[in-house]
Design a protein around this nucleic acid. Sequence first.
DNA 1: TATGATAGTGCAATGGCTTGCAGTAAAGCA
DNA 2: TGCTTTACTGCAAGCCATTGCACTATCATA
Lengths: 353, 353
Amino acid sequence: MNSRTITIRDVAEQAGVSQSTVSRVLNCADTQIPISQETRQRVQRVAMELGYRPHPGARSLSGSGTGLIGIITREINDPFFAELIDVISNMAKEEGYDLVLGNAKREPENALALRDRMLDPRHCDGLLLCGDLRESAEDHTFLDSMGRDHRLVSVSRGSQHLVGSTPSVDIDNRKGALLALDYLAQLGHQRIACMNVGRVGDLWERLEAYREFMQEGFGGVPENYVQPTKNSYDGGYKATKRLLSLPTPPTALFAMDDTMAIGALGAAVDMGWAVPADLSIVGFDDMEVAAYVRPALTTVRQPTEELGRKALELLLTMIEGEVPCDPCPRLVLEPELIIRDSCGPPLDRQTSA
Amino acid sequence: MNSRTITIRDVAEQAGVSQSTVSRVLNCADTQIPISQETRQRVQRVAMELGYRPHPGARSLSGSGTGLIGIITREINDPFFAELIDVISNMAKEEGYDLVLGNAKREPENALALRDRMLDPRHCDGLLLCGDLRESAEDHTFLDSMGRDHRLVSVSRGSQHLVGSTPSVDIDNRKGALLALDYLAQLGHQRIACMNVGRVGDLWERLEAYREFMQEGFGGVPENYVQPTKNSYDGGYKATKRLLSLPTPPTALFAMDDTMAIGALGAAVDMGWAVPADLSIVGFDDMEVAAYVRPALTTVRQPTEELGRKALELLLTMIEGEVPCDPCPRLVLEPELIIRDSCGPPLDRQTSA
DNA sequence: TATGATAGTGCAATGGCTTGCAGTAAAGCA
DNA sequence: TGCTTTACTGCAAGCCATTGCACTATCATA
């Protein structure tokens, strides 16, 4: 290993050309100025041999981007987002970008501060905003306030609520929720409960679909069937305990996401309710562990891989192609119901069956 | 918002001083050159008002660090590492650093490539290597080959096996394993099985402790009681199915980590084995979900928070203080047994009890 | 009043890369 | 042979912050 880092100068010298030629060759610049194939190859060979790497700072200083993409996540430590980051990080590497992590820790202010820094073109070439954080309408507008001219893509934030200036990639949360709810209804459930974690775009869309479904199918939501809680294992656990203590407890639970569903599973067992005999539970996300808990979780799968790929693809188009993207791109991907073992007919149907 | 980004020039102009003064004030340079309190405050005020942020590229170009810390992880999409990243990212932000993600995807070559890039001082100020990847002795030596002069800290890689040149923060895996195994033995288990995921430092240490324990306590490991597999839900599931199909199946399982333990739980149920009545299972990590599966998982808790904090702390000392760190720091933290519901006495003891 | 010390300031070089434009060599043409 | 055209190559000016060193006031002392 050389002790000194190799600069473009060294490559130029070795290859017997000027720095500018090296730069032009290595950047494959679509410049008017032609360079012979022979020179090209020689430069590339020398650069390779010397193990030359351009200085990232110098590149960004002279306006060639940072090679960095920021990714602000509602909660890194949430298996769904961990999977999403995983997908995106792999693809980013393939495309020659590194990921800079921003952890919003569920706080809109954190996300805001992170966004301000990362959206600075000198910091990152682009920014992915994963998972909604809105606690109030204002916060959301604010977070949404910098649109397409800023190389920002929203992922899984609940596209329906976005004001319109940010390109986004989402799944159809409404449809996903309906997939789950229809399935429960088909099994014979009417007393279906749900969670409410606040005005968090993606989860909120599911809740709205639930409300609509209950209204249309059963004339409304039974009292206390929408339990306010946090979206976490613990949140699901506690909310379910409350639900099952209701005078008229539900026979089924649409848990909004898999962490809550798994928490719910635990709560049901602890209270002596058998799943799915006494209580059916549907999750959302289909995170890996969902298939390994027992009973295995019936859940709505998000196409995580596709979600990540499309989001990064879109962002890269914006960064590299500088596409004006008008109308503002809004991708909505399809969720899928994965039927496993956590749902069955309600008790009354079981006896009659 | 100003359309043009604010440079140090603008601040200098506004404050009526020269660029160098601004730079000196803002960096709190411990220079010999004195600057009056009044000027200091004026400059700071102006910088604040103008919302000045130094250009990261320019800073790194003139040798002042990048403000970036690389974090290469065996597998982002592994709840334990996700938790670790979470901790570290929070602390890094407090310290004014951003995290650049490197996803090794379990491949040593990936980690190597990432390391080469990130260890370049022009890329990152320091590097955290989380989780061991060694598949062979050579790979490991290689990954370890750049030591303390390179602002690199190993985290959870199995300190015992590190050759000695890399500062590290680990837990005492041997002790953790013994905590679990002693507990199982105390309950009356003798037929204790285990997983083998290859020469992956941290997990390998646990396996070695297991082997030693079985040798000393019961004169050796019963045939096929160490199941080669992957460390994942699926790996645990499959290995357990194999274990329970053995002519003389185990009465207890030390699953090496929680993902495998949860996979094991699923396999046991699927094969009609009750946990803990027919099979006791101990995990390792105490990731969040461990407390919510049923039966709740008895497991060895890693002090994840402390692990992350100490690692970053150590790295920052190396970066900022340029400490020669001799002897090479090697922190070993204490694990803790968390007793929940997945263990009980073996069948024969149950009847006699 | 000159001299030296002290407090405070700013010029200008530096770092590595990109890129507009000026430059040169070679080939083509009259 | 002398001219234009074509096919390339390289100079040098940025980009922005850092920092060694030289500089100017100001004041106290001899």
